[in-house]
Each structure stands twice: as C-alpha cells, then as structure tokens.
Design a protein around this nucleic acid. Structure first.
Length: 448
RNA sequence: GUCCCCAUCGUCUAGUCUGGUCAGGACAAGAGCUUUUCAAGCUCUCGGCACCGGUUCAAAUCCGGUUGGGGACGCCA
C-alpha cells in the first residue's frame, strides 16, 4: 500500500479563515491517521493578488494550530512544468490555441501553430459521462454537456487553476484530494484532465461547507474570521481544533472534549458528515473554557504573560512567577478567553482599577466605615495572614455584629476589586495582601 | 436559468450503509442544588426525524416525488 499523501493548497490572496482551517484540519487528521504526508502547496498563480503577508499569516496560523507540513511547494515556481504539459496536449490535438475575443469568448484558432504571446491553450471537452466515488458522498456523476472547454494556460502564460491543480496533484503523488464542497463541480473537469494526461486518479473527498449564522457561505461580512484573529481573541488552538473537528465529524460515544492524539486514532474520513454546518461561537466559548480550566497553569501563564506585559501590568523580565501563577489558578475556571484574565484580575495589578458604577450604588451607597474599620483592626492583628485566618477573622466579626456574611462580603469585594463578580473574597484578600487590602478599605472610609 | 450536493431539537451531532432499543449526547435557553458574587460542578425542564407517497408485519433508516437550503457554472483560486 502506497503512503498516503494529502495536500492543503491555499491561495495567498487572503488570510487563513475558519473554512480553510477546517479543510487543512481534515487533511492533516487524515494524513496522521494513515501515517501519511501532509503537503502544503501555495497556489500563487495570481501574481497580482498574492501577497507575502497572507502567506505569512497562513503559515503562522497553520503552525499555531499544530498542522505542520512535510513538504512545501509554490505554484509560481512551476510555470514551466504546466506549460510543458499543456504543450503536450496541444501537440496531441487535445487542446487548441485561442485568442481572447472581447464578446465571443473563446475562439478556436488554427492548429499547428507555435504558441504566441497573447494566446491561451484551451482543452477540448468531448461529450462523455464522468463519474467518481467520493469518499464522503459516494457516487457523483456529471455529463460533460454542462462543461465548457477548459483554459489550461491563460493568455498571459500563467496556468489556470484546474490545470495547475491536476498537474501538481499528479506530480506530487497526492493520493487523496480532500477539499471543500465547492470543488465538486471542478472534479469532473479535473478528471478529464487526468485522463488526457494519462495520470492515475487520486481519491476524492468533499467536505461540507461551513455556513454563517445568517445562512449562506462564510464571507468577510459573515463571520469568516481569520484564524489569527481567533488567536488574538484568546482562543486556545487545542480548543479551536477540537471545535472545528467536531463540526462535521464525531468520535461517537457522546464525546465532546477530545484531544488530538485520540482524535487521530478514531478518525475516519468516511464518517465525516455530508451536511453543511453553521458556526456556533457559543459552543466554541464553552469549549475554550473547558480547555482553559484544565490546562496546566504554568503553561497557561506563558500564554497570559505577553498580555499582562502589554497591559503594562508586569515586566516579563522581572516579576513574581509564583504570585502570577497563583492568580492564574484563582481565575482559571472562570475564563472564556485569555484576555478575560487581564480584564478581571486587573485589581491585582493596579490600584486605579475601574469601579463598576452599578456595583458602587448597590453595595457602597450606605456608610460602612464602622464595619470596615473593625475589619481593618482584625486584619492588622492577624497572624499568620492566610486564607483560613482571613476567613475566620471575617466570620467572627460578622457574628459579633450580628449581621449576615453577605451583608459585608459584597461591599468589601466591590471596595477591593471594583466588581461584583470574581473569585472568593478571602482568596482575593489573601493574594491582595494585608497592606493593599487595608489601604483600599481605608480609602473608602475616608469617603471614596 | 442549467448542473451538482444536502436534509434529525434554535445550533453541533449519535443513530441511516447492515429497517425493529421511550430518537441519545453537547451548546444555548429555563428551573433548581451548592454558595460569598461570578464561573465551574451537579440535577431537572424545554425542544427534533422538512413534507407527501411507496415498499414492509415494522421506516429517522430503503425507494420516488415535493419543498427547502447550499454550491458550481471566470483566461479567480
């Protein structure tokens, strides 16, 4: 059995977005599940629209997702190859030369002529039936009546998509062409070219497209967000991969959270869905939280550090590692995305943290300076100053004052954090430290 | 318009190939437990086989049609 070889062939005319990432994902999973090779082919035949920055974004994102490629090719460096094969078809009389005619479209030119500047090489499509067995959809057949003659080499000398694609897939030994649904109608055109060139056919698998919430395919205006943006929004690659994989495939057994290794073991292209899926960001959020809360805190910290530095909260060359690690653990289960930490833990890094207006009105509108003062007194005497001690000091106080814990807990939290939500109050006090806690409470006693 | 593909809760899906388990799970939504708020966790609720016909003792599952959705019809990729 030959080694499985699959390819992901993006065009560097835009970023890698969700749809492309999922195509790459299924190719990569298929390759891994078959111990095959994953090839990256840059389809940069459109010199005007291809941009280095897009290439950079695409390759960066693929690596970030963990889809490392075994081989890399650029179509722009293979123009001679395409021309040679087109020339061969021309010599065999299976293609003809044509000049671009403004209104009439293609016009057959006289044969046995050398290819001149400004002439395209066009493949003659003969009437016949073309059928293939799609790995996901089964038998699909077309009648070539609906297929026009195909441009092989454009009049500017660059190859047309379907032709370059076929020549490359054949020459690169691609065994399985796994791509989006939108290529189904390209498949018969390509099969005709495989036959004409005497190449053997690869297997085809067409993945269902991802639809936007409003219906219709993903587009810039309809949620075709670049993968790099998801990274910036604070999603973990493992969560994104898990989510995307389950959008069209299921490991069975009611599994939702499933790691890459296990997915590779269970993956089977034949069980990929035939139906288009709608992107559900709510579920991605849930999944990201699932990964965030179980991720190794020190690894999580590495992801958060750059964000803290950017916010000006720490100097990554000089900061208390254990302290930040503790804070991460305090918030870990409460995060949806990475930046949530920076926003919600701000009061640990700055004294001028924002104060929620409603929180202030709800919990600090009435004068609690007497209670705050009493609590400060207890905190000053606390030895040792740890979570349990802080809690018992607080509990003793509210008991003596004959009030419910929550009557004082909420105001204190708002005074210390500016928020009504967050980790347990006693942890907050402990990690804030005696000094800062007292200082913030005193500030309120003095009138806020 | 022509051709191609698809059809299970609002969303992602299991089940369809190899008809026969109250159509199962997850997200979202709602309720509750826990509690110090939020998150997490746990429990429960809501909600679906697009429609019509056929085959069969039996259809989400097989067949046909209808409707609906999507895609493709470039010297873009």
């Amino acid at each position: 059995m030959d080694t499985v070889r699959v390819r992901f062939a993006p065009s560097p005319t835009g970023n890698l977005h969700i749809g492309g990432a999922r195509t790459a994902l299924f190719n990569w999973f298929y390759a891994k599940s078959k111990q095959g090779k994953f090839i990256l082919r840059i389809e940069d035949t459109d010199q005007a629209r291809s941009k280095k920055e897009y290439f950079d974004e695409i390759t960066f994102s693929l690596n970030w997702l963990g889809f490392h490629w075994d081989e890399l090719y650029y179509q722009s460096r293979r123009f001679d190859i395409y021309r040679d094969y087109a020339r061969k078809l021309l010599d065999e009389g299976r293609a003809y030369l044509s000049r671009k005619v403004p209104d009439a479209g293609l016009e057959q030119a006289v044969q046995d002529q050398p290819v001149e500047q400004g002439e395209a090489i066009v493949f003659k499509v003969l009437p016949q039936k073309v059928a293939f067995r799609d790995l996901i959809r089964g038998e699909i057949s077309f009648d070539t009546e609906v297929i026009k003659d195909q441009v092989l080499i454009k009049s500017d000398g660059t190859p047309a998509y379907n032709f370059a694609c076929v020549v490359d897939d054949a020459l690169m030994g691609i065994t399985h062409v796994i791509r989006g649904d939108d290529h189904i109608s390209n498949t018969p055109k390509q099969i005709l070219l495989y036959r004409a060139l005497g190449f053997s056919l690869p297997s085809f698998a067409h993945l269902p497209l991802i639809l936007s919430k409003e219906g219709g395919r993903l587009s810039k205006r309809k949620g075709a967000t670049a993968i790099s943006e998801y990274r910036e929004m604070g999603y973990l690659p493992e969560a994104l991969v898990n989510y995307l994989l389950l959008l069209g495939w299921s490991p069975g057994g009611d599994r939702e959270i499933i790691g890459t290794e296990e997915s590779i073991r269970l993956f089977d292209i034949a069980h990929v869905n035939k139906t288009a899926a709608v992107l559900d960001l709510d579920k991605l959020d849930w999944m990201n939280n699932q990964y965030l809360k179980t991720k190794d805190p020190s690894l999580l910290m590495e992801e958060v550090l750059p964000l803290l530095e950017k916010a000006g909260y720490i100097d990554t060359n000089n900061f208390d590692r254990n302290y930040v690690l503790s804070l991460i653990q305090l918030f870990q289960a409460r995060l949806t995305t990475l930046p949530d930490f920076v926003e919600r833990a701000d009061f640990f890094f700055r004294d001028d943290f924002p104060l929620d207006r409603e929180a202030r009105e709800k919990f600090l509108s009435k004068d609690l300076s007497a209670e705050f003062s009493l609590f400060i007194e207890r905190l000053k005497k606390l030895e040792p100053f740890d979570i349990a001690a802080v809690e018992s000091a607080f509990r003793d106080l509210v008991q003596e004052l004959a009030i419910q814990s929550k009557v004082l807990i909420h105001p204190v939290r708002v005074a210390l954090t500016g928020k009504t939500v967050g980790p347990g109050l006693f942890e907050v006090i402990y990690y804030l430290g005696r000094e800062r806690t007292i200082a913030r409470l005193e500030w309120w006693i003095k009138g806020g």
